[in-house]
Design a protein around this nucleic acid. Structure first.
Length: 114
DNA sequence: ATCCTGACTTGAC
DNA sequence: GGTCAAGCCAGGA
């Protein structure tokens, strides 16, 4: 949901947005960060996702990739192929750790969610 | 308190 | 289309 105030931590905000990502779609860290208002804090989005792994949050982190569509976070998964398989499972084609038609599958919270 | 690292992004060459 | 360097914020040592 739209951040009403900064009462919630940056992480909680990331979780909300990521959980709102529709299936078969992907987004970038910068897009989420920009939606949160911290455009330059794209790294924090990834950091928040790490925390999400520790917690039992139902955050589809596999739907979040870097700007080039590269599965940068796959190495942080339990298995280096878990992320790619999860994406393919939703119908997203992944090739060489990169999302095919990433631009087409890109989901911008600032525009789509609005 | 400083220094380093990191699931990133952008601009410049 | 590549690579290099700088900026960015949070957390751990």
């Amino acid at each position: 949901m739209a951040p009403k105030k900064d009462d919630y931590s940056f992480f909680a905000n990331v979780f909300e947005v990521v959980k709102l990502i529709p299936p078969g779609r992907v987004t970038s860290y910068g897009a989420v960060a920009a939606y949160l208002g911290s455009k330059g804090s794209a790294r924090m989005v990834g950091w928040a996702l790490i925390s999400s792994h520790e917690q039992n949050k139902n955050v589809p982190a596999h739907r979040v990739v870097n700007r080039t569509g590269l599965l940068t976070g796959k190495q942080h998964y339990t298995s280096p192929t878990a992320m790619q398989e999860s994406l393919e499972k939703e119908g997203i084609r992944v090739e060489n750790d990169q999302v095919v038609d990433f631009k087409q599958l890109f989901w911008d919270p600032a525009k789509e969610l609005l």
